[in-house]
Design a protein around this nucleic acid. Structure first.
Lengths: 201, 201
DNA sequence: GAAATTCCTTATCTTTTGTTAACGTTTTGA
DNA sequence: TCAAAACGTTAACAAAAGATAAGGAATTTC
């Protein structure tokens, strides 16, 4: 994918939240970079400050923590989704997790420094602020829903929901990552899958 | 607590994120109302659109869902914390949960209509936008942490963490609400407590 | 293209959690 | 103030999940 297409995708994403004039887009695009991220390469590593926020315009990434030497996958970002280690990015503290490309990907990045510049830009400041608010609100709602699912649903129910909403995307992800995402072990997910098989068979 | 003190508390909270001139505060305070919320009364009810966002200046509330006729408590807000059924408030859709006062409380409220007005106010618009962004980011980080706790920690670890960070507040909350919050049953929490007792004894 | 690794499933056993019910205590509310 | 309701703990049993290991299929890597 060429840079121009990638940037166009970013503009489309941004304008879902905040419309831009061509002049504003011209200004905003100056702050963006387009970066390739090869499969298995890291977007963020635990212990380092995440210095950028990005949009996945091609490919996908997974977020994972390391606990007792084990990798535990907590989240994914696919095409047309933002990615960042938000806490690290927002508070300028070392990240607790890794973000790694699941496949060869292309990311449109906005560095922390450039974001600040964009926010101080007369032309863009207000719209950047608004985009930031709406993006944070969007993920707030997603996270709220996920927390609720941990509290009121069983692992089996969470998986059933995921099957319904996840779409084709799911088949691209290894089962054991999905198990982690659901808060259970891969073995347990395998058993749940068998139970569901039997019922629907 | 009188209205003036309550409003002052709101200003303090707001200024932790965005400083205000007296003139700006004067303008902002016009949009706020101070409301008492008696114990067991509802701030939000499932099925209705949550039309306001508020700050708890006195007392506390709990958030709960009803599933299979059972109440399941998912969250709390105490003094100096915001409260709202965020998804409902932000998307203007019916809330999925109830928010109920745990004790006699005082809330400083900003209605959806007034928030819009404040955002259109020349003097305040930008600062409201920024406050909105920073608040959403704050809760985003809180939620992210909580999701991570469900994925990488056992219920026992989550409870141990809660004991460390929760402070005195915890002793005000019934155990079975805490159990729900941790994603387990009250019986299970009781067992965890006994295990911890034995170890520390 | 072959060896190595990763991945998913399955089995067995252990641990934890859920369910239901009982009991005594505390709190609530009329 | 007194009866009713709510709370926390415990017990007994059932169900689910975790841990570990093994086997075969698929994928990766060189």
């Amino acid at each position: 994918m060429d840079s121009l297409t990638a940037l166009q995708k970013f503009r489309q994403y941004f304008e879902r939240y905040v419309p831009l004039t061509d002049e504003e887009w011209q200004a905003l695009s100056q702050y963006l970079t387009v970066d390739a991220l090869k499969k298995k390469r890291f977007y963020v590593e635990a212990g380092k400050v995440c210095d950028h926020i990005g949009l996945v315009v091609k490919g996908s990434v997974r977020y994972y923590h390391v606990k007792d030497g084990e990798e535990i996958t907590g989240y994914f970002s696919f095409e047309d989704e933002m990615l960042s280690s938000y806490k690290s990015f927002l508070t300028r503290t070392p990240a607790a997790n890794y973000i790694q490309a699941l496949e060869d990907s292309v990311i449109v990045n906005l560095s922390h420094k450039n974001l600040q510049q964009a926010c101080m830009n007369e032309l863009l400041g207000f719209k950047m602020e608004r985009f930031g608010r709406l993006t944070a609100e969007h993920y707030l709602i997603c996270y709220e829903k996920r927390i609720t699912s941990f509290i009121i649903q069983s692992p089996e129910e969470r998986y059933a929901d995921l099957l319904q909403t996840g779409g084709e995307t799911l088949y691209r992800i290894p089962q054991h990552y999905i198990a982690n995402y659901l808060g259970i072990t891969p073995v347990s997910l395998s058993r749940i899958r068998r139970r569901i098989m039997k019922i629907s068979a």
